[in-house]
Simulated scan of single mutants.
Amino acid sequence: MSQKSGSLGRYFVIRLAMAVPMVLILLTLVFFMLRVAPGDPVTASAGGAKMTAEQIAAKRHAAGFDRPLINQYGEYLGNVVKGDFGTTISDHRKVTDIIVENGGATLTLALAALFVALVVGLPLGLLAGRYRDTGFDVAIRLFGIVTYAAPAFVLGALAQIVFVKKLGWLDDSSLQASPLIQASVPTKSHILIVDAAMAGDWNAVHNIFLHLILPSVTLGLIIVGVFIRMVRVNLIQTLRGDYVEAARARGIREHKVVTKHAFRNALIPVITVIGMQVALLLGGSVLTEKTFSWPGLGNQLINYLNARDYIAVQGIVTFIAVVVIVIGILIDFVNALIDPRVRY
Results as ranks from 00 to 15, higher is better:
residue 2 S to L: 10
residue 2 S to V: 12
residue 6 G to W: 15
residue 6 G to Q: 14
residue 13 V to S: 08
residue 20 V to L: 07
residue 21 P to T: 08
residue 22 M to L: 14
residue 26 L to D: 11
residue 26 L to G: 11
residue 27 L to M: 12
residue 30 V to R: 06
residue 31 F to C: 05
residue 35 R to I: 01
residue 35 R to S: 03
residue 39 G to C: 03
residue 40 D to R: 02
residue 42 V to I: 15
residue 44 A to K: 11
residue 46 A to L: 09
residue 48 G to R: 07
residue 52 T to C: 01
residue 71 N to I: 13
residue 75 E to M: 04
residue 76 Y to E: 15
residue 82 K to R: 15
residue 85 F to L: 13
residue 89 I to D: 13
residue 90 S to Q: 15
residue 97 D to K: 05
residue 104 G to C: 02
residue 108 T to G: 05
residue 108 T to P: 03
residue 109 L to P: 04
residue 113 A to V: 04
residue 115 F to P: 07
residue 118 L to S: 07
residue 120 V to T: 14
residue 124 L to N: 09
residue 129 G to D: 13
residue 129 G to C: 00
residue 131 Y to M: 00
residue 133 D to Q: 12
residue 133 D to C: 01
residue 137 D to L: 10
residue 141 R to M: 14
residue 147 T to P: 07
residue 149 A to D: 08
residue 160 Q to G: 03
residue 173 S to V: 10
residue 174 S to Y: 06
residue 197 A to H: 02
residue 198 M to H: 07
residue 199 A to N: 11
residue 201 D to L: 08
residue 206 H to N: 14
residue 209 F to A: 13
residue 210 L to N: 15
residue 223 I to N: 14
residue 229 R to V: 01
residue 233 V to A: 13
residue 233 V to S: 13
residue 236 I to H: 00
residue 236 I to L: 04
residue 243 Y to E: 02
residue 248 R to I: 06
residue 252 I to H: 03
residue 255 H to M: 09
residue 255 H to T: 12
residue 257 V to C: 05
residue 262 A to G: 06
residue 263 F to V: 01
residue 272 T to N: 14
residue 288 T to Q: 12
residue 292 F to N: 09
residue 301 L to E: 09
residue 301 L to K: 05
residue 306 N to V: 15
residue 315 G to K: 08
residue 316 I to R: 08
residue 322 V to K: 04
residue 324 V to C: 11
residue 332 D to M: 06
residue 335 N to K: 02
residue 335 N to A: 00
residue 336 A to R: 05
residue 338 I to W: 01
